[in-house]
Simulated scan of single mutants.
Amino acid sequence: MDLSQFRREYLRGGLSRSNLNSDPVLQFTEWFEQAQNIEIADPTAMILATVGSGGQPHQRTVLLKYYDEKGFVFFTNFESRKAREIKENARVSLLFVWLDLERQVMINGTAAKVSTAESARYFMTRPKESQMAAWVSSQSHILSSRQMLLQKFDEMKRKIGEGKVPLPSFWGGYRVAPVEIEFWQGRQNRLHDRFLYTRNGASNEWTIERLAP
């Protein structure tokens, strides 16, 4: 199928150096709030890219649960492929795509597990059904049938009953500590605006450079 004529112009606006916050986390907050304000579907959805020891990249969509100057946090099964690859290579990339605003944000950094206490605090805020689902899904492993998964879920519901669901030892969060954050704003004629923040390891300060589209 030839898709070469499938295109549109990006005309919503531009991005200049004078409009950028010197702190990329604060700049991210500004853009994230704008995405929320126009009610973009799933503004917390981000593509997580990992590369294991074999060198093959893998991508999937995960949900940002909170962030601050220390990094961006998501949760998963520690036996999943993403977790196995992070164990082999902690360098990861996150990508937010907010096409309604013609914007992207790319975050490159290193992922590390959050504390068990931090994972437990978040786990307790999840709906009970989601808590139970974390127990029954052997994430990324081969599943013989959906019926078997649903059967395990029903068994879990009967076992837990009205009780509380404990935090699985194989489930928790990762914090991605950023070393680079790029803000991309679509522009007419594919002359997009791109600004790259790079953290200086010695001073922990950020430098900002404009990149060619």
Rank of each mutant, 00 (worst) to 15 (best):
E102C: 04
E182M: 03
L150I: 13
K128N: 11
Q59K: 11
Q185M: 04
R84P: 01
N89C: 08
S169M: 08
G109Y: 03
D68C: 14
V97C: 13
P166W: 07
V176A: 00
M132F: 03
L95N: 09
P127Q: 05
G186L: 07
G186K: 12
S137H: 11
Q59D: 06
T110W: 02
Q139D: 04
Q104T: 10
A133L: 10
E79G: 05
D68H: 14
S80E: 08
N189G: 00
Y66A: 03
P178N: 00
E85A: 00
D68R: 14
E129C: 00
R158Y: 02
K128R: 13
R84H: 10
Q59T: 15
V62Q: 06
N89G: 03
L63K: 08
V105N: 08
P166V: 02
R194T: 07
A83P: 07
L63Q: 13
L143S: 14
A90T: 05
L191E: 01
W98A: 06
M156T: 09
H192T: 04
A90D: 09
S145D: 09
W184F: 12
V176I: 14
S130G: 06
R158S: 06
G172N: 09
L94Q: 03
K70M: 11
I142E: 13
K65M: 01
V176G: 02
M106Y: 10
S119E: 13
A120C: 09
I160F: 07
A133K: 06
S93M: 00
L167N: 08
F72A: 05
L191K: 01
E88R: 11
K157A: 13
K70E: 13
L150R: 15
Q147F: 14
V179W: 01
S119Q: 12
N89W: 08
W171I: 00
Y174S: 08
K152F: 13
W98K: 11
S80C: 09
W184N: 07
Q151D: 15
Y174P: 10
R146K: 15
A133H: 05
L167K: 09
Q188P: 05
P166G: 01
M156C: 12
H58V: 02
F183M: 06
L150D: 15
S169L: 09
I107H: 03
